[in-house]
C-alpha cells in the first residue's frame, strides 16, 4: 500500500509486491474516474441537446400565445374575463366556507331540481303563468266573479295542481319537525 508522507509529500512504497497491487488499485480508480467523467460529459451533452431543441419550440409557443391573446383581446374576451373576476369576488365574499361545503353536499340535489325545472312542460307552465300575470285584469274579482271562476275547468285544474304543491310542502315541513 502507499504511505504518503504528509509533511514531505513523498510516497513510501514498502515492498515491490505492494507496488503491483497499488498500481492496479490506481488503475482501477483511474478507470472509475474516466467513467464518471464520461458520464458527466454525456449528461452535459444531453442538457445542451435539450436546450437546443426546446428553445425554438418555446419561442414558437410564445409567439403563438401572443397571437392568440391578441385575438382574444380584439374579440373582447379579455375585458369580459376581467369583469367576471369582480363577479367571482362578490360571490366568494358573500358565501362562507360552510355555504360552499353545503353546496358541495347538495350539488346533486340542486342539479336534479334544475333538471326538473327545465323540463319542457315546466317551462311551458312558467311561460303560461307569466302570460296570465301580464294579462290579468287590473281590478280584483268580486265575490261573485270568484265563485264563477271556480266553475271554469282550467281554474279548477290549476287549483288542483296548486293544492298538490301545498300538500307536498306541508309534508316536507312535518318531516323536518319530526327530525328535529
Amino acid at each position: 500500500m502507499l504511505n504518503a508522507n504528509d509533511q514531505g509529500g513523498h510516497v513510501d512504497v514498502t515492498a515491490p509486491a505492494d507496488l503491483a497491487v497499488t498500481l492496479a488499485e490506481i488503475n482501477r480508480k483511474l478507470d472509475a474516474v474516466v467513467e464518471v467523467t464520461e458520464d458527466l460529459g454525456r449528461q452535459l451533452e444531453s442538457f445542451e441537446d435539450l436546450r437546443e431543441d426546446l428553445v425554438p419550440i418555446a419561442h414558437e409557443g410564445i409567439l403563438i400565445a401572443y397571437r392568440k391573446l391578441h385575438e382574444l383581446e380584439q374579440a373582447g374576451v379579455i375585458d369580459f374575463l376581467k369583469e367576471s373576476a369582480g363577479v367571482f369576488h362578490t360571490i366568494s365574499t358573500s358565501f362562507t366556507q360552510e355555504d360552499v361545503k353545503a353546496l358541495g353536499d347538495n350539488v346533486v340535489h340542486i342539479l336534479r331540481t334544475v333538471r326538473s325545472l327545465t323540463q319542457p312542460e315546466v317551462l311551458d307552465l312558467a311561460d303560461k303563468a307569466a302570460g296570465a300575470l301580464r294579462e290579468a285584469p287590473a281590478e280584483p274579482l268580486g265575490r261573485i266573479g270568484l265563485l264563477r271562476s271556480f266553475r271554469d275547468p282550467e281554474v279548477r285544474k290549476g287549483l288542483t295542481m296548486f293544492l298538490a304543491v301545498l300538500r307536498e310542502m306541508g309534508g316536507e315541513a312535518e318531516s323536518e319537525e319530526s327530525a328535529t
Binding site: 444531453s46 441537446d49 426546446l54 419550440i57
Partner: peptide, 10 residues
C-alpha cells in the same frame, strides 16, 4: 415532432 430528436438520442 421537434422534441422527438432529444427523446431519440437520450
Amino acid at each position: 415532432k421537434m422534441a422527438f430528436r432529444w427523446i431519440y438520442w437520450n
